[in-house]
Amino acid sequence: MRWWKVLGVAGFAGVAATGVLIARDERRRLAYTPQEVRERLRARHAEVAEAETPTRSGHRPR
């Protein structure tokens, strides 16, 4: 019956570690100002738009 205790402790540790990672990610996300978010979105959009632009032959690069 001891292995049940070890399994329970391991499960608890996994849940706690996941909570820590989620909290850290949330703090990092909330640290951006609205202007920084806009700039990042515009930069990502420009990258995607550039990648989707067809070449002279009419084929998109892969």
Rank of each mutant, 00 (worst) to 15 (best):
M1A: 11
M1H: 13
R2F: 10
R2M: 02
W3S: 14
W3C: 13
W4Q: 05
V6K: 01
V6W: 14
V6I: 15
L7P: 05
L7V: 03
L7A: 08
L7D: 07
G8E: 12
G8Y: 01
G8F: 03
G8H: 07
V9L: 15
V9W: 08
A10D: 02
G11E: 00
F12M: 08
F12L: 10
A13V: 00
A13D: 03
A13P: 04
G14P: 03
G14Q: 02
G14F: 00
V15H: 01
A16V: 03
A16Y: 01
A17F: 00
T18V: 12
G19Y: 00
G19K: 04
G19W: 05
G19A: 10
V20W: 11
L21I: 02
I22A: 09
I22F: 13
I22R: 03
A23V: 05
A23F: 12
E26A: 09
E26G: 09
R27G: 12
R29Q: 03
R29I: 13
A31H: 00
A31L: 05
Y32G: 10
Y32H: 08
T33W: 13
T33P: 10
T33V: 05
T33Q: 15
P34V: 14
Q35P: 04
Q35I: 15
E36H: 01
V37E: 04
R38W: 06
R38H: 14
E39A: 13
E39F: 14
R40E: 14
L41R: 03
R42A: 13
R42W: 02
R42C: 06
R44T: 05
R44W: 00
H45E: 00
H45C: 06
E47D: 10
E47S: 04
V48D: 11
V48Y: 08
E50K: 10
E50R: 10
A51N: 04
A51F: 05
A51M: 07
E52G: 03
E52T: 06
T53W: 11
T53V: 08
T53Y: 02
P54L: 06
T55F: 05
R56K: 04
S57C: 10
G58D: 06
G58Y: 02
G58S: 07
H59A: 14
R60N: 07
R60I: 14
R60Q: 02
R60H: 02
R60Y: 10
P61N: 08
P61L: 09
P61W: 10
R62E: 12
R62T: 13
